[in-house]
Amino acid sequence: MRILGIDTSGKVAAAALYDTEAQCLLGQQVVYTKRTHSQVILPLAERLLADTGLTWQEIDGLSAAKGPGSYTGLRIGIAAVKAMAYALQIPCAGVSTLEGLAWQNLAWNGIICSVMTARQSLVYAGIYESDGSVIRTIQPDRILPVAELDQLLETLEKPVLLTGDGAEQLEEKSWLKVASPATRLQNGTGICLAVQDGTRWISPDVLMPEYLQLVKAEKDLQDKKAAK
């Protein structure tokens, strides 16, 4: 099965193509950009297909980062995958951005903390464990203060691998290892690997982003209600 995975959850736009039968990453396109993801992600995917000599009709499944992350970026990525899945009549899947970051670091044997910047002193974080072949969730994704995450990490089996753009916000400790630049930011590979067992496929109509916090319009409405 050939899986095209895309991630538009942060400042990096990424697309990766994985062959489950060959257990091979066929290609990858990643760009750190200030342009909107709507301008970047489809050209990235098309370039990836051109480089591998494949057509859209040879893709068997589509996977997207569903959050947390940039509200706008996530909506763009989810909308693109839904549209492609409808057009190609193939299944799709949504993967936690944080879980995808953990899968990118599958070679690490032990605890992985995926952490992304949220707002002010808050971060998104998920705790995972890798045995070198499979990632399993230890603590589900949530949004919390950096100081609280620091305390949580103290309770975990050590060493811990940190990955994601929020890794450097945490206090330096000898047992905290930061992932290499090649796997620290979203690259699309983990979004493919997370769905390779085929258990997560869904129809595009039920694929939705998961933000972990209220969007701005919801926050404003909540504030107005609280002020009354």
Rank of each mutant, 00 (worst) to 15 (best):
L101C: 08
G164H: 06
W108A: 09
V146C: 01
G5A: 04
T155R: 13
Q120R: 15
V31I: 15
G73A: 05
K228G: 15
G67Y: 14
E148N: 10
G198V: 00
D197H: 09
K216I: 13
E148T: 14
I6H: 01
L74A: 11
V95M: 07
K216T: 14
V195P: 10
S203Q: 11
L48S: 03
M116Y: 12
T72A: 03
V12P: 04
A16M: 04
V215L: 14
I111Q: 14
D165R: 00
E21F: 02
Q222T: 14
L54P: 03
D51C: 02
Q23K: 14
V40M: 10
G126P: 01
I112F: 07
L152N: 12
E218C: 14
Q222S: 14
A16W: 02
G166D: 09
A179G: 09
L221W: 15
T8M: 04
T163V: 07
A45M: 04
V12A: 12
G73I: 07
A85S: 15
G10Q: 13
E99G: 09
A65S: 13
L193D: 02
L25N: 06
L185W: 06
T52I: 01
A107V: 08
T183C: 05
A83R: 01
L185N: 02
V40Q: 06
L122E: 13
T199K: 14
L162D: 02
L44F: 06
T33K: 05
G77T: 07
L54W: 00
T36P: 00
N105Q: 06
S63W: 03
L193F: 01
Q213W: 15
T137I: 08
S38V: 10
Y32M: 08
A14T: 09
G5Q: 06
G190W: 08
E210I: 14
E172H: 09
E210R: 13
K158G: 13
A85H: 06
E21M: 06
P91R: 03
C113T: 12
V206M: 11
A45S: 12
Y71M: 02
A85D: 12
L54A: 05
D197W: 05
G5T: 02
V123R: 00
G73N: 02
K177Y: 12
L212M: 15
L152A: 13
D223H: 14
K224Y: 14
S9I: 09
K34Y: 05
L48R: 04
Y124C: 09
T8D: 03
I59A: 03
W56E: 08
V134Q: 11
A50R: 01
E99H: 01
S114R: 03
L176Q: 10
S203H: 08
L49T: 00
K216M: 11
R136F: 09
R184C: 04
S70I: 04
T52R: 00
L98F: 09
D205M: 12
L4D: 02
V123Y: 05
A147C: 07
A50L: 07
D60Y: 00
K225I: 15
A50C: 00
D220M: 08
T137L: 03
Y86I: 09
A83I: 07
Q23F: 09
D165C: 00
E46V: 00
A79E: 06
P209F: 15
P91G: 05
K173A: 08
I90D: 01
A182E: 08
E218P: 13
L221S: 15
L122M: 15
A194G: 06
